[in-house]
Every structure is written in structure tokens, then in C-alpha cells.
Simulated assay, not measured.
Amino acid sequence: MYPIVEIVHIVGFAVLVGSVAMFDLRVLGFARALPLKALGRHLLPWALASLALIVPAGFMMFSAHPHDFAGSTVFQLKLALIAAAGVNAAIFHAGPYRGAVGWNDGAPAPLAAKAHAAASLLIWIAVISCGRLLAYT
């Protein structure tokens, strides 16, 4: 059963990080012909729905080896990075994204928005790296 749960977790992460990456790349200036708000309305439900796969699967994987994971520095870092990604997204949506009307179609995003997008990409790459490293620690 563990491999099936792990596959569900990975598929969920692929959808989540893929959605986030597409949005972040748009904020960074790629594909400016796509309206940012429309892209966000399309990708956000996919990102949120993927959490319905990731969270329960993650809890199941944790419950199979709680002592191994709880004592792992890599696992603790992964959880801290996930929290950082959530805080970064919340600040982005409460701050720069509120002014997205001015850079929705073609105009470059402000530096603050780009900083959040770049941080998001780096944080999620780090989360994925930690997840992979867990197999070897």
C-alpha cells in the first residue's frame, strides 16, 4: 500500500508545483499575452484540489514511519519550507496581487510581485529536493 500512497503524493505534488510554477513564471514575465487574473482563476483550483491528494497521503506516509520522519532534519526542513511557501503565497495575495489589474495584460509585474514569484519557485524546488532526500536519509 505504501508505494500507492507515495505515488498519489507525488502526483499531487506534480499538479500543485506545476500549477504554482506556471503562475509564478507568468508573474516573472513569461507568456505575458496570458491575462494573469484568468490564469490564476484557472490554476488556483488545481493547486487547491491537489492538496486533497497531498495532505492525506503525506499523513499516511508519516504514520508508517513516524519516528524516522519526526527525527529527520530533512523532514523538519521540508515542513518549514512548506510553511514558508504558504506564508509567501499569503503575503503575495494580500499585497502585490491586489494591484494585479495594472499588470494583468502584458505589463510587467512590479518588483515585489516578481520577488514573491521567484521565492515561490525556489522554495518549491527546495521542498521537492527535501522530499527526494528523505528516501536517502
Rank of each mutant, 00 (worst) to 15 (best):
M1Q: 11
Y2D: 07
P3S: 13
P3L: 09
I4M: 13
V5Y: 04
V5S: 07
I10T: 15
G12C: 00
A14I: 11
G18K: 08
M22Y: 09
F23E: 03
L25W: 13
L25T: 14
A31F: 15
R32A: 12
L36S: 03
L36D: 02
G40F: 03
G40E: 05
R41I: 07
H42I: 08
L43N: 06
W46D: 05
A47H: 06
A47R: 06
A47E: 15
L51V: 14
A52L: 11
L53W: 07
I54Q: 07
F59V: 15
M60S: 12
F62R: 14
S63M: 11
S63N: 08
S63Y: 06
A64V: 10
H67A: 13
D68I: 07
D68A: 07
D68L: 12
A70N: 11
G71M: 12
S72W: 01
V74I: 10
F75V: 01
F75S: 01
L79N: 00
L79V: 02
A80G: 10
L81Q: 02
A85Y: 00
A85N: 02
A85I: 02
A85D: 01
V87W: 02
V87Q: 06
A89S: 13
A89R: 15
I91L: 12
F92C: 03
F92K: 01
F92N: 04
F92I: 02
A94Q: 09
P96I: 02
A100P: 04
W103F: 11
W103A: 15
A107L: 12
A109K: 00
A109F: 00
P110M: 15
P110V: 15
P110A: 12
L111C: 11
A112G: 09
K114I: 14
H116Y: 10
A118G: 13
S120W: 13
L121C: 01
W124Y: 05
S129E: 05
C130H: 04
C130K: 02
G131V: 00
L133C: 09
